[in-house]
Nucleic acid binder design. Structure first.
Length: 672
DNA sequence: TCGCTGCTTGCCCACTAGCA
DNA sequence: TGCTAGTGGGCAAGCAGCGA
């Protein structure tokens, strides 16, 4: 049956009738169809999903809706128009439901009132939501109207989330039977093996960083000398961290963790300013008749504590749903956007104050829970606070004073805000480069000066006017400035995120790009696409040569892959290559996870690895295609602050982080 | 005491509604 | 129609309970 189409370029199909487990759980398989045009020959992607329907379990009085909006799937056996009968319904529609708060009570309701009104005019009776929630099974496979409530990931629903590759393959083979004989399944992607010279080249370039063990069960892990030395080096640009706490617990935790992980090398300076993180009240503007947030106290704090050079500050704030915020706004975005104007780069940590929630449908977070993980929160606050100051990034290998890697790695990202989150919408291109482990930032819409990361953050917070150069001119400036500044470097890699940057840098679009006319003859330009809009293809990859789906071996593939009909030795340098992240070690899932066979692991969640698509759009050395892709893939693993493989190559991650480190929403009227 | 399982939660990433 | 931000979804990891 057709499901609700969420996007113009996709179609969703949902299996019917839902299959049921011996215990009475119900589930369907959904297939989302999208097209892939950048790989020749053109391909159709099928994305599978588990639709797990909530049924009442045991003696519980009723099932609960999700936290915010629940989109229930509705299937009606007779036509929506009473005088016109359909033989067989072939589509679902959705009705949104949520909780409505009135007189101190939460009641479930159908949310989408216009739809309800239309249905009323069509004389369609929508059942009362309370009876649906009290007896959901009464609304599955009826002869009137079926209403199905999708389960959240954490809910037990008889099946786990995700469809494993073996099942996908099985389903694809069945689907193929219905298609014309010309339709074929694509073969597994072929792994590009990184061997000998290539492997050597990677291992001789890049450092390995130690794993940072986290505190657990209230105990701090043992920090060996090597790890402590490493952490101290990452913080060596910091004289001190200003800490502004509301409660002694948080202050003590930060002190304890700083001492434990960084020894005596981090100086903490405690500042008591309770009011800094108070809820923000609103007041009427004198000039215009509008409400604006009162942020004078944050500005005054900045003025009084402004250091000569940018410095980190950790600010304790209350959770956004704390009761005292009901009287005012969450100060977090204001702290984030105002303090860097005064050379203070803030990192926030949540209070341990008891959270009393009036919402009975929320999971209640007890004080105990927040107490328990305070060490973890303190560690991530400290790491995030020092991260922008980490100017000597542990990436390339040094031998004494000499860097063995004469390569520049750069990432291009466009920070955007709309009217909702800034007084005026804007696009701000940023470029982050790493050369001989030195991190530098270019704000090309402003000037062509390479800044340190903290300087760039403060500059972005202070001043939002851009030069009026055309986007094209800005891009040309970036490319020529990059080649000039690093003229002695052997290679320059520039990573750009397609979905983010291509409206600014139109050359990145498939239709505008011309391989014969690269914008630079010196720089390797690599375009990265992620799953947004289904732009990275669905696919499976096998680590072995034999095609086998037994024991889910395909789920554990990782590395770089190309479609099987490509020959890596002969392909164009612009060929799309897939980078597949490693599944985390701890994710040791059982091998047999089929959703269709009644096996004990059927209810475990399953997830595909993160896939990215790379294209090299320009390169002075097309013959080194494999090396360029191997480097791009390897840079996903070079984020010292986390063990996991990350979304993007390192310089692109740092460029994206700039957005988080500054420009948080909430600008206020200038009252100075 | 250890290993296994299920449950919970923080955090991060992905998806898509709704804005511009 | 493209982009953003809010919401949804999933992984990691802690913890409790249970049985060997």
């Amino acid at each position: 049956m057709f499901g609700p189409g969420y996007r113009a370029n996709t179609v969703e199909l949902v299996s019917w009738p839902p299959f049921s487990s011996p215990r009475g759980y119900r589930a369907s398989i959904a297939v989302i169809i999208s097209t892939q045009s950048d790989i020749d020959p053109k391909k159709i992607n099928l994305h599978f999903q588990m639709k797990r329907w909530v049924v009442k379990g045991g003696e519980k009085s009723e099932v609960r809706l999700q936290k915010n909006t629940t989109r229930c799937y509705v299937r009606r056996l007779s036509s929506w128009l009473s005088d016109y009968d359909l033989l067989e319904p072939n589509a679902f529609t959705t009705l949104a439901a949520n909780y409505h708060f009135e007189n101190g009570e939460y009641t479930p309701q159908w949310k989408n009132q216009p739809v309800i009104k239309i249905l009323e005019r069509l004389s369609v009776d929508i059942p009362d939501i309370k009876s649906l929630l009290a007896n959901p099974t009464d609304f599955i496979e009826t002869n009137q109207m079926d209403i199905l409530i999708p389960a959240r990931s954490y809910q037990k629903a008889g099946w786990g989330t995700g469809v494993p590759f073996s099942d996908e393959r099985n389903l694809l083979e069945q689907i193929l039977d219905f298609l014309p004989s010309e339709a074929t399944l694509t073969a597994p992607w072929v792994k590009i093996l990184i061997v000998k010279e290539l492997k050597k080249s990677i291992s001789q370039r890049f450092q390995k960083t130690p794993k940072i063990s986290k505190p657990s069960s209230g105990k701090l892990p043992e920090i060996n000398e090597e790890l402590q030395q490493f952490l101290v080096e990452q913080a060596n640009n910091i004289n001190k961290i200003l800490v502004c706490c509301r409660t002694p617990e948080v202050g003590e935790a930060i002190e304890r963790i700083a001492k434990h992980y960084f020894g005596d090398s981090l100086t903490l300076e405690f500042q008591s300013s309770q009011s800094l993180a108070d809820p923000i009240s609103e007041e009427k503007s004198k000039k215009r008749n509008e409400l604006f947030p009162k942020t004078k106290h944050i500005k005054e704090f900045g003025k009084h504590n402004q250091p000569e050079f940018p410095a980190p500050i950790i600010v304790e704030i209350l959770p956004p749903d704390h009761q005292s915020y009901s009287k005012g706004q969450d100060p977090y975005p204001h702290i984030k956007s105002i303090l860097p104007q005064y050379n203070l780069i803030p990192q926030c940590i949540l209070s341990s104050e008891n959270v009393k929630r009036s919402d009975e449908f929320e999971e209640v977070e007890s004080e105990d829970k927040l107490e328990e993980n305070i060490d973890n929160r303190a560690l991530s606050a400290i790491i995030d606070a020092i991260l922008p100051f980490n100017q000597d990034y542990p990436l390339s290998i040094f031998e004494g004073e000499l860097c063995k890697d004469n390569t520049v790695y750069a990432g291009f990202y466009v920070i955007r805000r709309n009217k909702k989150t800034a007084n005026q919408s804007f696009s701000e291109p940023v470029l982050v480069s790493i050369y001989e482990n030195q991190v530098r930032v270019l704000l090309p819409a402003r000037d062509l000066q390479f800044r340190s990361m903290p300087d760039a953050i403060c500059e972005l917070a202070r001043n939002r006017t851009s030069r009026s150069d055309s986007n094209n001119q800005v891009i040309n400036n970036v490319l020529s400035r990059l080649s000039d500044r690093y003229s002695s470097a052997e290679d320059i890699y520039l990573f750009a995120h397609a979905q983010n940057a291509r409206s600014y840098w139109t050359w990145l679009q498939d239709s505008k790009f011309d391989r014969e006319k690269p914008p630079s003859r010196k720089i390797h330009i690599i375009r990265i696409r992620d799953e947004t809009n289904y732009e990275a293809p669905e696919g499976y990859r096998l680590t072995t040569k034999e095609e086998t789906f037994e024991e889910e071996s395909a789920s554990f593939g990782q590395g770089i892959f190309i479609p099987q009909d490509c020959n890596i030795e002969k392909v164009e340098f612009t060929q799309t290559v897939f980078s597949v992240a490693q599944k985390p070690d701890t994710n040791k899932l059982p091998k047999q996870m089929s959703r269709f066979q009644n096996n004990p692991s059927r209810n475990k969640p399953w997830k595909d690895q993160q896939t990215r698509a790379h294209n090299i759009l320009a390169t002075p050395s097309p013959e080194n295609l494999k090396l360029h892709h191997a480097i791009t893939h390897h840079l996903r693993t070079c984020h010292w602050w986390t063990d996991a493989q990350s979304k993007y190559p390192l310089p692109l991650s740092l460029a994206e982080k700039l957005k988080e480190w500054c420009f948080n929403d909430g600008e206020s009227e200038n009252t100075d």
